[in-house]
Every structure is written in structure tokens, then in C-alpha cells.
Design a protein around this nucleic acid. Structure first.
Length: 583
DNA sequence: GCCGTTTTCGGCCCGACTGTTTTCAGTCG
């Protein structure tokens, strides 16, 4: 059994939870949590490091002790310390920590005073009126806990970012229209353009004493109010999304934007740099802490002023994860991130010939209106029955139709392609002589998602070895809310793509956003081009490209890393070069 | 438990809100 980084992180998180319940030194708890976050985000597997004899304490935040525990977890799947801690607490008690409003102290009290060890028992106790009897708890606490547990048991915790965009835009417009508001922006993971968000943070610049919490509550989508003070408020929208509002004076807007955009890890590093310079960063600005000028505010109106105050250039929000961006900023080697306007074409789209909803002509027109110069038509192949996939005869007929259409099109060129099924054994779903007549071949897995890692990886590697293979579509197969990613060895796939000279897709559909951000970075580092593709099934879907670009930026991609940022002439050359010689 | 431009010990980000407190602890982000 190979132990993955995510499993090591889960062990460290559970240790952290149990140490918290035990009342351990909070900084010790934080060390475990930091280690878990580092491992989750690290692009290379520690199991691989172990076979290479590399030392785990080369990871940031991992010292001798945690390095030893990583080694132990790789061998046993757990570690002695976790075993000891588990023996001291009832199984599953850490679930209680997930209930909003319950932290370690209160869970400790609930367990020791009332014997509560599960969310269901907690709900029973709250309804029976037993919680209000505990010191430090009252009737209000009891009611809120009951609501939180009931909500916790049913609520989905994250949304694809595109699913909340219309609510967010409407709410921003509602807030901006309030008198006295000079700016309103989204912060948090939404602004960092993560693929999913758990809640939405909105920041507003307005004079002190402004009744913005009331303005928030008057938004017609608000279902209930969780909290409201003079500078903060939290509400839950009708769809269950939590929105946190913060109000600051205009002169603090930049500092507050840095603060609430995060990530938390990024901010902690910024504060460390500030401390070393005898400065303090909070949501109101950057302040001197030592000498005669102590307390003087030296920055904060803009984000750039905050970064400049600690000697750094502006860092784009998508990079603020403490994944090396601060070191890069210090050394002047921040990437110049790709932008939507850099995309010259789109290399994955469907028509009504398979499961798309519009004709060739309409898709071509919509692509041109989206500012694209070329569009690859890549309908499904026959193996995907549910999508009415194309067999060789229908595909060749479509090729002829594209040739005829191209002859009359202005401002857009259609490329002849296919999204061909990668069969479970790694063969492609169409004959070689048919694939040879296409401009590009996009290969995709739509079946046998649950193959074991070695077989799934070998299946994809074999498909990539096909002489006409161009791009691997949605490489993980994740469909948010439907299925998780396939178990594949992405490092091997990236290495193989480099050796084979083919590309990986970053699928821009909001439920996919696949490649993931860290994998984009891995591909970039390996020199493998990425196609940011819409996978459009109707003309309106070209708007998804923005979400793909957002994720590409999180993966540190520059224009030069993106295949469809090439002008058409250079794309033709790339496509010709990627075909294995002799075919 | 980690770490070093205050350095191998003594720090570790910091402020707002809530509830139950009568001055603050717990939780959250």
C-alpha cells in the first residue's frame, strides 16, 4: 500500500484535533496543522521521496520530529502518537470540532460534563435543554448549537466558484449602490480564484458608523443573520452560502484587502517579514512598532502600498498561498501570469453532432464573438454511447463539412478534431487511418474510473504513446459533486507528456477545472504545454475560459506555457511536431 | 513542534463578535 501525502496530512490533522482537546500548547498544535497543509499542497509524494532517500525535514515547517512521524506513517499508515491519543478519547469526537461555534474547550466540556461524543448526541442534549446547565453555556448558546448541528448535518460545505458568481455580483452591486460606499470587493478564496469556495468574504470601504450591516441584511437573498456588529456582519443566503461582510475606512482598504484575501498562510509569512522590520501589519494598515515613531501608520490605502512597506512587489491574489510566491517576489522572479486576452483559440468543443447543443456554424460564430481566432471541433467518439459519439463515417463527414465551412468563414478557423475515448486498456476508440486525417486528437477517459492507480496510469500512458495523440483532456476526471478524481500518478503522466511531446488540458468547466492548480505548476516546471479549453457544449460556454485562466494563474502559468495562446501558424507547427515521425 | 537579519531559547498574527462575564473566555477568520 502506498501512503499518499493526503493521508499523512489527515493523520497530522487528527493529532492536532486531539492535542487541542487535550489542551496542549497551541503552537504545537499549529505545527501539526502547518505540516498537514504543507503536505496537502506539496506536488511530490513523500512515498516517492522515501524511495529516493530524500530527507522529509527539507519541507518547510517539518523538523526532526515530524520527519520521523512521516516515515512511520509511510510504513504503517498511522503513528504511535495518534494511537496513544485515540486511546484517550472516544472514537469520532473530533467530528464535534467541525460544528460551527464549537472549539476544543467547549467540546472538552461537553464530553466531560455531559458525556457527549457525537453530533447526534449533541443535538439531543440541546433539544433536551441540558446544555444550558453547563458553566459558560446559556440558552442562547444552546439554541445556536442546535441550529449549527442541524445545519452541519445537512449542508454541503463548498461550491464551485461559478455557482456563486451571480449571487456575489448581485450582492456587490447592492452594496456599491449604498450611499457613502466608495468601494466593494470580494476577498477570500473567491478572489484567490480557488476552484471552490466555502463562504464569501466581502470588503467595503465606507466612513465609520455606516449602517452597512443593515444594507447587507436588506439584500433580497438573505435568509438569516448570524452576526452583525459595527464593522462585521455574517449572513446566510437562501441557497445556504455564508457571506461575511467587513467594513473599513477607505484609507485602510488595501490593508484590509490583503488581510481578508489571505491565504492565512500567506498573511502569516507577511507578518513575520513585517516583524523582522519592526513593523506590524493588521487589517487597518502597516504600523511602526519600535523607536520614536512607534504606532505611526506607514501604508494601507492600497495593497501595493502594504507589500511595498515590507520591501515586496505586488503579488497577484491567485498566488497568495505561501507556495513560494513570497520568495519569488523577493528575488524579482514572480511569473507574468497568463490572462484571458492571451488566449487565441480553444482546442476542445462540441456540436450537436454528439452531445453539444448547437451547430458547427453557431459554435464558430460564438467562438469568434468570444475573441478567438481558432476553434477545434472535438465531438465525442462512438464509444461514448450516451453522448451519441461519432463513428469513423460520421467523423469524416464532419471533416468535410468543416472544410466547406472554413472556406467561407472570416475571422475564425475551425480545426478538425475528436475527443476520442481512451479505452480501459489504453487503446483509442477510432482506427489509426481516421485519426491520421484529423488536425488534432484529444484523448479522454469517460469509463472505468475506478481502475487501480497502476492500471489507470498505464492506460493513460499507453494512449499518449499513440502516434496521433495531441492532448490529454481533463486528466483527473473529477466532476465536482458527482465523482472525485481518478487515482492516477500525475507525476508520471507529466513526465511522459514531456518525453512524448504532447500537451495536457486544463478543462475550464466549473465542475471540472482539471488539471488542478498544483499540477499545472508541475507541468509548467516540466515544460509540458497546457491547453486551457472550454469543453463548450453551446456558444455561451466559452465564458468558462475565464475560470480556466483563473486556475492556470493559480498554477503560475505564463502566456508561454499555454498551448492555445499560440497564434494559429505556430499551433500548426506544434501539432505537426507532436505526431510521431513516420505517421 | 518549528525556527533563526531580535537566533539554539523564547517566541510563534491579531482583531472582532458573542454570550455570559461583570472584565473576559472562546471562537472565528
Amino acid at each position: 500500500m502506498t501512503v499518499r501525502n493526503a493521508q499523512i496530512a489527515a493523520v497530522f490533522d487528527e493529532i492536532a484535533d486531539l492535542l487541542e482537546l487535550q489542551g496542549a500548547n497551541p503552537f504545537r498544535v499549529r505545527a501539526y496543522r502547518n505540516a498537514a497543509r504543507t503536505l496537502e499542497a506539496w506536488p511530490e509524494e513523500m512515498a516517492e521521496w522515501a524511495t529516493q532517500g530524500r530527507d522529509f525535514d527539507a519541507l518547510p515547517g517539518i523538523g526532526k520530529d515530524l520527519a520521523g512521524k512521516i516515515g512511520e506513517i509511510l510504513q504503517r499508515g498511522t503513528c504511535a502518537q495518534l494511537d496513544r491519543l485515540r486511546a484517550q478519547f472516544p472514537r469520532g469526537i473530533t467530528d464535534l470540532l467541525q460544528v460551527p461555534g464549537l472549539g476544543p474547550r467547549r467540546v472538552h466540556a461537553l464530553y466531560h460534563e455531559l458525556g457527549i461524543r457525537t453530533p447526534a448526541q449533541l443535538l439531543d442534549a440541546a433539544r433536551a435543554g441540558r446544555i444550558r446547565t453547563l458553566p459558560g453555556f446559556g440558552q442562547a448558546s444552546e439554541r445556536r448549537i442546535a441550529e449549527a448541528v442541524a445545519g452541519h448535518l445537512e449542508r454541503s460545505t463548498r461550491w464551485p466558484i461559478a455557482h456563486v458568481a451571480s449571487d456575489v455580483e448581485a450582492l456587490l452591486a447592492h452594496l456599491r449602490a449604498a450611499p457613502g460606499v466608495s468601494e466593494a470587493m470580494v476577498a477570500g478564496s473567491y478572489r484567490r480564484r480557488r476552484d471552490t469556495v466555502g463562504d464569501v468574504d466581502i470588503l467595503v470601504a465606507a466612513p465609520p458608523g455606516h449602517a452597512l450591516a443593515d444594507r447587507l441584511q436588506s439584500f433580497d437573498q438573505v435568509a438569516r443573520v448570524l452576526a452583525h456588529g459595527s464593522t462585521r456582519a455574517s449572513v446566510v443566503l437562501r441557497n445556504g452560502l455564508q457571506v461575511d461582510l467587513r467594513v473599513v475606512r477607505p484609507e485602510s482598504f488595501g490593508a484590509a484587502l490583503v488581510y481578508f484575501t489571505g491565504s492565512k498562510a500567506h498573511n502569516i509569512v507577511l507578518r513575520g517579514i513585517a516583524r523582522a522590520r519592526r513593523l506590524k501589519i493588521n487589517e487597518y494598515g502597516v504600523y511602526r512598532t519600535g523607536g520614536r515613531g512607534a504606532g505611526t501608520r506607514i501604508a494601507g490605502e492600497t495593497e501595493a502600498s502594504v507589500y511595498a512597506a515590507i520591501g515586496l512587489p505586488y503579488i497577484p491574489p491567485e498566488l497568495r498561498e505561501d507556495h513560494g510566491e513570497i520568495e519569488a517576489a523577493r528575488e524579482g522572479r514572480l511569473p507574468v501570469l497568463v490572462e484571458r486576452a492571451d488566449l487565441r483559440g480553444d482546442l476542445h468543443a462540441h456540436t450537436d453532432a454528439s452531445d453539444g447543443h448547437e451547430s458547427l456554424e453557431r459554435m464558430a460564430q460564438a467562438a469568434r464573438e468570444a475573441g478567438l481566432e481558432y476553434l477545434a471541433i472535438t465531438d465525442h467518439s462512438a464509444g461514448l454511447k450516451i453522448a451519441h459519439g461519432l463513428d469513423a463515417r460520421r467523423l469524416l463527414a464532419q471533416c468535410e463539412a468543416i472544410d466547406r465551412l472554413n472556406a467561407g468563414l472570416r475571422g475564425i478557423t475551425l480545426l478538425k478534431g475528436i475527443e476520442v475515448e481512451i479505452l480501459p486498456d489504453g487503446r483509442l476508440d477510432l482506427p489509426d487511418d481516421v485519426l491520421a486525417r484529423l488536425d488534432l486528437v484529444v484523448g479522454a477517459v469517460h469509463s472505468a474510473f475506478d481502475l487501480p492507480r497502476a492500471k489507470q496510469t498505464a492506460r493513460i500512458l499507453r494512449a499518449m504513446d499513440h502516434p496521433h495523440f495531441s492532448i490529454l483532456a481533463h486528466p483527473n476526471g473529477r466532476l465536482f459533486g458527482t465523482r472525485g478524481p481518478c487515482d492516477v500518478d500525475m507525476e508520471r503522466i507529466v513526465r511522459h507528456a514531456r518525453e512524448r511531446g504532447c500537451a495536457l488540458e486544463l478543462n475550464s468547466q466549473p465542475e471540472r477545472l482539471d488539471l488542478f492548480d498544483l499540477q499545472c505548476r508541475m507541468a509548467r516546471d516540466a515544460g509540458v504545454p497546457i491547453a486551457i479549453s472550454s469543453d463548450a457544449h453551446r456558444g455561451a460556454d466559452f465564458r468558462w475560459l475565464q475560470y480556466g485562466v483563473d486556475q492556470a494563474r493559480r498554477g503560475w502559468l505564463e502566456k508561454g506555457d499555454v498551448l492555445n495562446a499560440l497564434p494559429l501558424g505556430r499551433l500548426w507547427k506544434w501539432l505537426a511536431a507532436t505526431r510521431t515521425p513516420g505517421c
